[in-house]
């Protein structure tokens, strides 16, 4: 490949990566015979996590379509994306990985989205052995930030430790300063999986440092019945709750919190607990609930305008349930102020 197209591919790759929450670390050096870049997407459209994930896939797929149809691909090379159903199960993500790791139609695998923290844990060593970069935005194994130890794992934007830190800092901000945290009670309600447990070490350290009481309450997978947990919350009477749930457990958590009389504006969710498709079904119960986001809120960005014009309004969007958008506009939207991170 000539050096010029290699350089311009890097540039295109960087642009593509930032918006689709992925970063192609090391450009995909395609063989001369490949005409498309193969990108497999291990998605989940079935199961308790499907509602959280479907908005994510819509964003990714709409953006890929935009690149293919409006921009003509990355330097002329179109993206050939393919979906595989995994139901958020790490087993099945590993199966998908094994299936796709040799690429397709001459295009090798440039990187692998894991779309789930347990899957990242399962694949981190395999990917290092196969020399395939794993991309896990706002998640993954926090230790993999150290590229010298984990050269093929790329946790982007946030790690779980930084999410924990941001959350606690925001709480401190609300309380009037980090020193005001002393003696307060912060309960973490977490989904009992690699995902939910990922912030525990960080919160523990912060609790030691700033003197607040740290209580962790697990919610068993898939978390569709949480009365015992929130009854315990009511018993503990904490000052704040850090919500580390995903999928249907978020909806149920917010609704159960209301049932047990815990105010929603004292609940701070992490990045994955802040999905619109989880908050809208909670309805009134979610008014005042806040969650972290790795990007500024709203739809006033240029990329949104471009996507809207070419993809959404042209009817090519992957957004299955436009209801989600419409419902959100018809109903009184729960106010979601996002903490900057």
């Amino acid at each position: 490949m000539s050096r010029r197209s290699f350089a311009s591919r890097m540039l295109h790759g960087a642009v593509f990566a930032t918006v689709s929450l992925g970063m192609v670390a090391g450009a995909a050096i395609s063989t001369a015979s490949a005409t498309e870049q193969y990108i497999p997407l291990p998605t989940y459209r079935v199961g308790p996590y499907a509602s959280s994930g479907s908005l994510w896939w819509a964003g990714t797929i709409d953006y890929f379509r935009y690149i293919n149809e409006v921009e003509g691909g990355i330097d002329g090379i179109k993206i050939n994306f393919e979906e595989f159903e995994t139901e958020w199960s790490p087993d099945r993500t590993v199966e998908v990985y094994e299936r796709v790791k040799n690429g397709k139609n001459g295009s090798p695998l440039a990187f692998f989205f894991t779309h789930g923290t347990p899957a990242t844990y399962a694949l981190i060593e395999k990917a290092a052995a196969d020399k395939i970069p794993l991309i896990d935005p706002a998640g993954g194994r926090t230790e993999s930030i150290d590229g010298t130890v984990f050269p093929y794992a790329f946790p982007l934007l946030f790690s779980y430790y930084s999410q924990a830190s941001t959350g606690i800092n925001y709480i401190a901000q609300k309380e009037g300063g980090l020193d005001k945290l002393k003696g307060k009670k912060i309960v973490t309600v977490y989904h009992d999986s690699a995902y939910g447990r990922a912030t525990q070490p960080a919160v523990e350290l912060l609790a030691e440092k700033y003197g607040f009481e740290n209580i962790q309450i697990p919610v068993a997978d898939p978390g569709n019945e949480q009365s015992p947990q929130w009854r315990r919350v009511r018993e503990l009477k904490p000052d704040w709750i850090f919500l580390r749930t995903w999928g249907v457990s978020t909806v149920v958590a917010i609704k159960t919190a209301q049932r047990f009389g815990f105010p929603a504006d004292r609940i701070i969710g992490d990045v994955w607990a802040g999905s619109e498709s989880d908050v809208i079904p909670a309805g009134d119960a979610a008014k005042g609930y806040q969650a972290l986001a790795p990007y500024p809120g709203g739809t006033g960005f240029e990329i949104h305008d471009r996507l809207k014009k070419h993809i959404l309004d042209a009817g090519k969007s992957d957004l299955r349930d436009h209801e989600v958008l419409r419902r959100g506009q018809l109903q009184h939207r729960p106010s979601e102020r996002r903490a900057r991170g």
Binding site: V46, G47, S51, N224, V248, V251, V252, K255, P281
Partner: peptide
């Protein structure tokens, strides 16, 4: 009580 979805 907890939203209509799969885990029902």
């Amino acid at each position: 009580r907890q939203g209509v979805q799969f885990s029902l």
